[in-house]
Amino acid sequence: MTMGAIEGVDLTRAFGGFTALKSVSISIPEGEIRGLIGPNGAGKSTLIDVLSGRAIKWSGQVKLFGEDVSSLSPARRRCVGLARSFQRTNIFPDLTVIDQLDIAARRAEQPNVSEILRELDLKRHAKRRAADISYGDQRRLDLGLALIGRPRVLLLDEPAAGLTVQESMDLAALLRDLATRWRVTVLLVEHDMDVVFGICDRLTVLHLGRVLAEGTPDEVKRIPEVITAYLGDAA
């Protein structure tokens, strides 16, 4: 079996009597765009949190290109090429766009601030305070902070949250484009099915903390259990 770019092995996370993840294993080959879908409360954000190092009490293993990174802090994981974006925009409100990208770039081997500004259409906002730009631009900035240095693996937690239909489609196209050109492996949590079906190579479906199904988008959408799980929860 080929080594995955990112792998989660037997991940379990429980807190306050509630088990968010139950022995979840996931393996994503290099260069793939994997969609992570499932009804609310399925454990998707938790999985991203565990893989990115945000969660503290969990068991199992996280591997990056075969190396065990389970004990690494989020900062160290970032330095070895594992980056993430956030569902609730997590930027530096009072710094200018370019300043915060600069700060991120200082930790990267390839400080590609100009490239990020260009690709994410943030050049015109470069000198503006992050708090002053539009929500859509802030979402792209959040993404930009994760893309600095061209990470090897990118974990995205609902990047299209709160965006208009047009903005979502643009973002999806952008992600597909960058992931292909830069050979980034992507794990994408999304509720917007147009985005998911538009750019994902494969899907993993989570339900109640477990992996329900895995396959190409076409395969997955035909599986009866997946449809049932989603009844009443259509995106």
């Binding site: 530096f92 409100p93 009072d94 700060i103 991120a104 990267a108 994760a146």
Partner: peptide, 24 residues
């Protein structure tokens, strides 16, 4: 200076500072 700006960034959003690669 870069360090000065870094500490301001950490002050604004310590979590994100960590996730872009800094020990705070």
């Amino acid at each position: 200076s870069p360090f000065g700006r870094l500490t301001v960034a950490i002050r604004e959003n310590q979590e994100r500072a960590q996730f872009i690669g800094y020990t705070t």
